[in-house]
Amino acid sequence: MADVTLRIPTPLQPYAGGRGQIALQADSVDELLSQVASDYPPLVQRIRTRDGQLRPYVNVFVRRTDIRQLDGLSTSLSDGDEVIVMPSVAGG
């Protein structure tokens, strides 16, 4: 499996025990999120819907590209990849 890093921006850090990044081994974004869910369920609840889809107002970037422009949650990961979860910043 690939050695990758999940980067967590400040708005989501309270749901990840205050951590800004987590080192993991995973071959796809889906696999990475499943691993994170076991340690930080509140974090992944804010990223995925109950049926496992990406929430509409969350963007996940791999190699600085939105995974919606790649293979979605099936996007494959390679050694050294950085996965960044960017929540929506919005209001009125």
């Binding site: 980067r7 921006p9 963007n59 970037f61 600085r64 939105d66 960044i84 960017m86 929506s88 910043v89 919005a90 209001g91 009125g92």
Partner: peptide, 13 residues
């Protein structure tokens, strides 16, 4: 309403 462009957020991070 406002929504910050996610690409801008990524760049800022």
């Amino acid at each position: 309403r406002y929504t910050i462009d996610p690409e801008d957020f990524l760049r800022a991070e």
